[in-house]
Structures are given as C-alpha cells and as structure tokens.
Write a protein that binds this DNA or RNA. Structure first.
Lengths: 368, 368
DNA sequence: TTGTAAGCGTTATCAG
DNA sequence: CTGATAACGCTTACAA
C-alpha cells in the first residue's frame, strides 16, 4: 500500500494519464467515455489511489486549505469558533490550518507568512490587535483575509464579529433597570476592538441614562481570573464609595472580582452586583450563578467560514461585514442595589430550561 | 508584492536557479561561494521572496505539516493538548493541520485520508475508539502515526497517554482513605481506552481493600453534564442503599451528578462524596469545590509532538510508549462518610496556593 | 472522446 | 563552487 500515482492508475487502466485525470475529476468526467471512466475508476480503486494534494495544489494554485490564526486554543470561545469554521469549511472540501499568536504581533506576522507560504486559499484571523493593521494588510494583498471576532476598521477587510457595543449596552441597561446608578467597568485589554466596543456601549448607555461611571481607568492585561482579582483589589483599595455594580468584560474577570469581594466580606449581589461576558461553561454553576452575555460563537465561526469561501470564489466581491448580537442571561449575581445579602447554600441545579443559551447545536463536547 | 519565485531571485542575482536554491537552503549554503550567497540573499530580500512550500514539499516529499486528529475543539483538554503540540512542533518548523471526528469512526477515516493526501509528515490522533484499530493501522502503513490520550494497544503504535489506571487507583485510594466502603462509578463511554482504564484502576484498588462497588453498570454516552444527570438519576431511582461516594469519570459528569443529588435533597459531601476527573476550569469555584484529578495535558501534547518528530526523523525507531500520571486535587466535594451536612455560603476564593495544579505554564488564556 | 506536451516552483544529481 | 537537467505528481490547453 505504498504511494500510488495517477500514472500507475492510467497504466493499469490502459489509458493515457490525462484521461485518467479527467475521469477522476468531477468537472471533466463528462468529457470521458463511459467505458474508460469505468476502467479508470476500477483501477484507482484496486490500487488504492490517493491523489497527491500537493501536486494538485502546485498545478492549480489552490491548496484547499484555509489558514486560521487564533490567539490560543484555550482562549474563551476560540474552540467554539474553530468548531464552526471547521464544520462549515468541511462542506466545501476545505481544511483549516491553525496557528496561534499568544497575543504577540510578531507571531501573528510569522503565522501569516507561514500560512501564505503554504499557499492557503484564504486566511481567517481572530487574533488581531489594533496595532496589527499593517501586517494584516500586507497579507491581505497576497491572499483573501477575513477578520473574525476582533475588527480592524481602518483596513476595510471583510469582518464577522460579535456586536460588542450592543453587549455593552445590554449590560448597562440591565444594571440600570435594576436601579444601579453607580457602576464601574473591569475592562479587558483596550488594544483589542472587542473590549473597546464593550466599554463604549456600556458608557454610551450609562450616559444616556445620566448614571455615573466610577472613575476607574485600569484595564486588565488579559482576561484571566488573576487579572479580575487584581482589578477588583485595586478598586477596593482605592477607597471612597464603592460602586453598587460591576461590569466585567469577561466571565473570568468577573469570577476573579467575586473572589476578592467575598474575601473582603462583601456579598454578591447583596453589596455589589456583577455581570460578566461570554457565558462560559459552568458560569451557571457558580455561587451566585453568574449573570452574563451569551455569544453565538459557533455560528460566528460558520459565518466567517462562509464569507471566506465566497472570498475565495470571488476575491473581488465587496468586503461584507457581519455583526452578531449577544444575548443577556440573567442569573443570580445581579440584583437591585442594597438588596439584603441572601445566604446561598449552593448553586443547585440550574432551572431546567434557559440554563445556558446560545450554545453550539447538539453534540456538546464529551469527555475522555 | 505578487508571487516571487526562486527563478526571479536567481535572475536578479545573476546566478543559476540551483545556486539560488542552495544559497537559501540552510543545509547547502556551505557549498556556495560567499559572494554569490550574498547576492542571492539580497535579491531575495529586495524582491520579498517567499519559498513555495507546496513545490518544495512535492519535490522533497516532506510537507512540514503534521496532521492532528481530535474529537472536537471543545472536548475537555483538547485545547491544552493542541497548545502543547503546536508549541512544540513550532520549534521544529512544523505546523499542525487539525481535523475533528466528533467521535465518528467514519469521520476519523476521512480525516486520515484527507491528511495523508496532503502529504503530512506524520499524524497524531487523540480520537480513537476501540473499534478503530483497522483504519488507524492502515494509515500507519503510509505515514508515522502517534496515538495520544487514547490508546489502541493491539496496534503497537507509539503512544503517549495519561495514566488513567493510576488515576482510578488514586481516586479509589482517596475515597477509601476517607472511610468509604460503598461506592459507585459514573463511567464514561467504555469504547474509549481512557475510561476503561479509569474503571479498571478504581475497581482494582477497591477490590484490594475489600470494599464493595455498587452494582451499577450504566455508562455515559459522552462525558457531558446531561449524562451525569442521567446516570445519577438512574442511580437514585434504582432504590436500595445509596453509595456514600461517587467516582465520576470526568468533571462534567460529576457536576451533573451533584445537580441531581442536590435536587433530591441530598448534600455533598454530607450524604454523598463526589470525585471528578480532569480538573477543568472553574472546578475550584463550584460549591462545593470539586475534588478531582488534574492532568498534565499540555505536557502530554508536547511529548506527543516530540515523539512525532522523532518518528519523522527515524520512522523505524521502536514505538515508544509514555504514560503520564495524574495528580489528586482534594477539595470540598469529598469527606468522611456521614459527616454532618455543612452549610456552605459560597465557594469563596480558593486557597491562594494549590488552587489549581498541573496546568499549562504561564499565559493562561486571556479573553476577547 | 482521447492523446500530446508543457509547466506549476523546487531541489537532487550530475558534470564541469 | 556552479551550471545544466531532470523530476516530484498533477492538470489543462490544444491538437487529433
């Protein structure tokens, strides 16, 4: 079962290689006599012929591979997006080739070079920072590039992202609706469009309602638990009147903040309400269960892939831009300000319905 | 900035293409005169030359790509493993090409075909079922294949896996040490080696101590929360004396079981202790915080990648087998049997040290 | 409908 | 040390 080439198939079928090629090609099979086609197909079958994608790609200029550049496989919803991308690409016979940047611009550049060098038919990236416009544009000159999750508006590249501004607005509206007037944000890194938008949306809605945002300009260096602790800690030490509610730019930051508050003897949502972002796995099993925004990331991945395919088919199609709204998921971590500090025994089984929404279709990950 | 080929570089440098090739190759540069080498390098630089990896691969028979077949990007520790693989591969100038199986053998077959057709230099797979030996062996005849996480002992292929038997033993020992004598397992799908081993290890240790395992032969169809609920529900409805402790084959199953127990008015660990497996993110923030086994998955990924590289370099090297032991992480969900049902207010900040162990090095995922 | 021939961009192997 | 030549496996005008 060694390497079988088209030449051998042709020989065995007693036809010319080009006929064999045609017989096996979906597009050209119609120009081949029924008889020879049969012979070729059988010969290929018997020999266990597998076309060499490299040779094909070299000849046709298409590799059938789409480069995907992500921050990190463990990044919040990266896996959901990759699932969406892979699943959708598969329908078109394409395969994703994935690289990580770990938030480094230099690695982003290298990854793009690497991928383009492998003749990928297009690139999807979810990992851009505001400073990366130049690198990305240079890549976009050589191959279609689609921006996902994080935008780079100056570039005018096709983009499919979460509507983070809307998310910020929803968060603010929820807190305002509960009666909060003094709130603060725990911001993610502001060189990433997503967080900038979340902040803007939140601020915008707040201003419209005449509520005040506590003057707290710190931003997290990344959206991890420890950073949530650090920011919340700083907020506490800062003194003065505490906000009655916190908008954390993602769930991990929110959980970190909850930790610190609890350690300081403050109750959530009794003393301080907290709303997160992402609706990560187990967010509904915390105590209190976390109010947050759920993101259609799987769907986003699918859309990004579709957009990419259309860019491959017609590189000159106008750069579309898609924006997907998040959904507010109200749970126990937000309440009216000053509400009695309730004693919670345990998260308990979340209400059967509506426990987690906006998730990928069937087939939640299983285990190993 | 269009496609620049080696030919053009050679022309501009005024040398023959083969000299240009040599000048740019790490291995052959030494057979090139200093002068011409300089000229070539400069020409390449000026033209923005990027070698075409497809052409190179076609010629050399090496693509510089390693195929990785996983169940699903959202599968428990898949992302950690992929991180490890990617990071380690990168050091050798290799890139992973990832495909998902969604636990389907048919898709596993297709993925392998696809990857081999792309001339990957090797394949790592974490997605095999006990029934997949034939497909995998057929692939292994054409390209080096390394098994990760899930084993297939009949095949004799190089393998790097978690030591799940040891994990089962540790779980049992922990529960026995607390004084439990009547315990049950919530098994994951038993067509996957990992779960078979966990069960065996647990059972083995139990038998050695003369403790009894509740006769409960159900197994989960996949390691998700809902399945944990289903199994625990069945255990409750089954009647008879309840076990005083449960060993769930992964954390999600454990959480599902906790849900059901709580809904039935039973306390954990007061009435029933529960130990999970995987030490997933936020396991330490549940109430009660989950006792579980932590897995060195990132490290596993790295080792799998290294083993793969060595297989590429010497395909005839004897198939190594590596087994990585898990670590027990004791938290609140396990206690002595019949211990008073303690009232927990909230998970609270986990003890600063030792809250989560066995994790990937620095750089926990940030957010978006 | 089928055969011919050229070439995609590289690198290996030979002479010189 | 450098140049010539062939070949990796496949597709695709073009001719027959």
């Amino acid at each position: 079962m060694e390497k079988v080439t088209l030449l051998e198939v042709a020989r065995r079928a007693g036809v010319h290689p080009s006929s064999a090629s045609r017989a096996l090609s979906a597009d050209y099979a119609k120009y081949v006599g029924e008889a020879t086609r049969r012979k070729v197909l059988r010969a290929a079958e018997e020999l266990g012929y597998r076309p060499n994608a490299l040779a094909k790609g070299l000849r046709t200029g298409r590799s059938g591979v789409v480069g995907v550049v992500v921050v990190d496989f463990e990044h919040p919803f990266t896996s959901a997006i990759l699932r969406g991308i892979e699943t959708s690409l598969e329908a078109d016979g394409l395969l994703p080739l994935v690289a990580q940047t770990h938030e480094s611009s230099e690695r982003l550049g290298r990854a793009l070079e690497h991928l383009i060098g492998r003749s990928v038919d297009a690139v999807i990236t979810t990992a851009v920072h505001s400073r990366d416009a130049a690198v990305v544009e240079s890549a976009a000159r050589r191959v279609p590039v689609v921006l996902a999750v994080r935008t780079l508006s100056e570039t005018g590249l096709p983009t499919v992202a979460h509507d983070d501004f809307a998310g910020g607005v929803l968060a603010a509206r929820h807190l305002l609706g509960l009666g909060h007037r003094r709130v603060a944000q725990l911001c993610g890194p502001l060189d990433v469009s997503s967080f900038v938008q979340r902040r803007r949306g939140f601020r915008h809605e707040l201003a419209a309602a005449g509520a005040s945002e506590v003057d707290f300009e710190m931003e997290a260096t990344s959206g991890v638990l420890e950073e949530g602790r650090r920011l919340a800690g700083a907020l506490l030490e800062r003194g003065g009147e505490l906000p009655s509610a916190l908008f954390a730019h993602n769930d991990l930051l929110a959980v970190g903040a909850m930790d610190v508050l609890a350690a300081a003897g403050l109750s959530c949502p009794g003393d301080v309400s907290i709303i997160g972002y992402d609706d990560m796995l187990l967010a509904d099993h915390l105590s209190p269960a976390l109010t947050t925004l759920s993101l259609p990331s799987y769907h986003l991945g699918q859309l990004a892939a579709r957009l990419t395919v259309s860019m491959i088919e017609d590189p000159d199609s106008p750069p579309a831009t898609v924006s997907l709204p998040p959904t507010l998921v109200v749970r126990g971590s937000t309440a009216e300000p000053g509400s009695a500090a309730t004693v919670v025994t345990r998260a308990g089984p979340p209400p059967v319905a509506a426990s987690r929404s906006g998730r990928a279709p069937a087939g939640r990950p299983s285990s190993t």
